[in-house]
């Protein structure tokens, strides 16, 4: 099912990593990962004009964690993801990926983006390229892979998301769910340390959402570090290692899904989950 991913940062295949379970201190190579979070956000501020979208957000995400960001619209979830990926400039604060400060002035944002995969709400497949070429573009131009190697890698990623037979289809010929799966494959092909999902299923019918969520569930099983903005509470309950509730640009509450769903400590959080469950039932 999974292609061997030997150049995975920690030098192990996904299957080996899954075997580790929670004992991440087991092997020497991942000892640092246990002590240092993979992704660290410190006191992040971001404004669009007069409107302050993020007001001092701090967050730590360990390797292998699946953090689900929830919150009302306009709470700053998507902006936070864009800041993590340097797609938006921040006003103040710090972001670290491993030992690298993402927000340092001498850090090349293109290098950071290679290590962080991003999946968009509006999918954004390259409209003029086939599914396969959507994936090979980054491999060829960013990684400098040969045409054959890139093609092989692209095909194995498409196979991974169950779209081996659609390699030569153009985005306009794919369903929404298929497009989003190609979008995930495109991000995965770059061997990211972290995958960011910005409402990956919001633009899709419930039926099509499921095929995307299945792929995401598989990624969770493989031990991928993920930060997911979503309203899919089923995914949050089943896959999240932590849930962060944001409102008005600040983290209101953070904790394991069981506690936040069953016993939130803030009225605001309880209210939000109440509203969501009404919407979805």
């Amino acid at each position: 099912m999974t292609a061997p991913r030997t150049d995975d940062g920690d030098g192990r295949t996904a299957d080996e990593r899954r075997g580790d379970g929670d004992e991440r201190t087991g092997s020497p190579s991942s000892a640092t990962a246990a002590t240092d979070p993979l992704l660290r956000v410190e006191n992040l501020h971001k404004s669009y004009g007069a409107e302050e979208v993020l007001r001092g957000v701090s967050l730590e995400i360990d390797r292998g964690d699946v953090e689900v960001l929830v919150g009302p619209s306009g709470s700053g979830k998507s902006t936070l993801l864009q800041c993590l990926n340097c797609l938006t400039e921040i006003d103040s604060g710090h972001i670290y990926l491993g030992d690298t400060e993402v927000t340092a002035s001498d850090t090349d944002p293109n290098e950071i983006r290679q290590q962080i995969g991003m999946v968009f709400q509006d999918i954004n497949l390259f409209a003029h390229l086939t599914a396969r070429k959507n994936i090979t573009l980054g491999l060829r131009k960013v990684r400098g892979m040969s045409a054959d190697a890139a093609r092989e890698r692209a095909d194995s990623e498409l196979d991974r998301v169950g779209l081996a037979d659609q390699a030569d289809s153009y985005p306009a010929q794919l369903s929404g769910g298929q497009k989003q799966r190609v979008g995930i494959a495109r991000a995965l092909a770059m061997d990211p340390e972290v995958m960011l999902f910005d409402e990956p299923t919001s633009a899709l019918d419930p039926e099509l959402s499921n095929e995307v969520l299945t792929v995401m569930d598989e990624l969770v099983d493989e031990g991928m570090t993920m930060v997911v903005v979503t309203h899919e509470m089923r995914f949050a309950r089943g896959a999240a290692s932590g849930i962060t509730f944001l409102a008005d640009g600040q983290i209101v509450e953070r904790g394991p899904p069981e506690r936040l769903f069953e016993n939130p400590s803030h009225e605001r959080t309880a209210q939000f989950f109440e509203n969501i469950s009404h919407d979805h039932d």
């Binding site: 990926n85 797609l87 293109n110 290098e111 983006r113 290679q114 995969g117 991003m118 968009f120 954004n124 497949l125 390259f126 573009l137 980054g138 131009k141 960013v142 495109r186 991000a187 770059m190």
Partner: peptide, 8 residues
């Protein structure tokens, strides 16, 4: 945006 997100 998507192009930049893959490191271009």
């Amino acid at each position: 945006t998507a192009a930049r997100a893959i490191g271009l």
